[in-house]
């Protein structure tokens, strides 16, 4: 193989590593996890890998260990973050498999494609899970059975709205605001008709499924592990989402009146 061919190959390998890294980032992996997984696969292919992290994209530079004059740098932009721990698990297992079984590049590409398209939960399964989670959250926080039922219903309906708005391609802030508005309107029934004894708990727990929990926790983990810009970006993003949840609740308060909350 001559030099230009090796250089070209290095470029395609960078693209593969970028694909792995950005898939992990979009699925809710912490920076250290992305770093570890990509390094593991990259060093098995014979490269030194350096990653620059950003919330909306990654820059990867690879350098051939046996010949440092061969290197490549590429950037990939991310469009959407969507927590998917199934991908996290599969790519982690893939990276260990690459290390232990010495997989070739086409095999890795094939496995990655399979991981990306693997179906997880259906829409209705997620809806029911969110409804049950809101029900149980309200119950553990001290609401009675009726309040918990309303919280569950509110979570279910809000999640349905979120899915519908997401399907139509609205901006994430509009999606979150709409869902939180619908949820808190339903939850306000508890306060208006005096169904439960603590309507505050119903209103607080029915929007918890919208909280970007993965990003919030990842933000602190990145802070502890030393990826400060990423931690900052995640923190800002999750505060922004919470702000839009608050806007949705505020809208419904405007309809119902603050004294009812």
């Amino acid at each position: 193989m001559d030099r230009s061919e090796i250089k070209h190959l290095a470029g395609t390998h960078t693209d593969l590593l970028l694909d792995i890294g950005s898939t992990l980032l979009a699925s809710g992996a912490t920076s250290e996890r992305i770093n570890r997984n990509v390094q593991r696969i990259g060093s098995q292919l014979g490269y030194d890998v350096d990653i620059f992290f950003d919330y909306t994209g990654l820059i990867i530079t690879i350098q051939l260990k046996s010949d440092p004059t061969i290197y490549a740098t590429r950037h990939k932009k991310l469009s959407k973050h969507h927590a998917n721990f199934n991908i996290l698990k599969d790519i982690s297992l893939l990276s260990w498999k690459v290390k232990e079984d010495n997989l070739e590049v086409p095999e890795i590409e094939e496995a990655l494609e399979e991981i990306k398209t693997e179906p997880t939960y259906s829409r209705w399964q997620i809806l029911i899970a969110v409804g049950l989670a809101c029900f149980a959250l309200c119950f553990t926080a001290g609401g009675n059975l009726k309040s918990a039922g309303i919280a569950g219903l509110a979570g279910f309906a809000g999640m349905y709205v979120r899915q519908e708005l997401e399907k139509r391609g609205y901006l994430s802030m509009i999606v979150i605001m709409g869902a939180s508005f619908v949820s808190s309107m339903i939850a306000s029934a508890d306060a208006i008709f005096k169904i439960g004894d603590k309507p505050e708990i119903t209103a607080a727990t029915c929007v918890l499924y919208l909280i970007p929990g993965v990003q919030m926790i990842n933000s602190v983990i990145d802070l502890i592990e030393g990826y400060y810009p990423m931690a900052l970006a995640r923190g800002v993003f999750s505060s922004y989402i919470i702000l839009w949840i608050a806007v949705g609740i505020t809208l419904s308060i405007m309809f119902i009146g603050l004294s009812n909350f």
Partner: peptide, 23 residues
């Protein structure tokens, strides 16, 4: 009661975050 309800919450959020079925 606390244990069972919290387990339901955890499983609900696990489905939302698409944790693999087997775990």
């Amino acid at each position: 009661k606390d244990f069972l309800l919290a387990a339901v919450v955890a499983i609900g959020f696990a489905v939302l975050f698409r944790t693999p079925r087997s775990v």
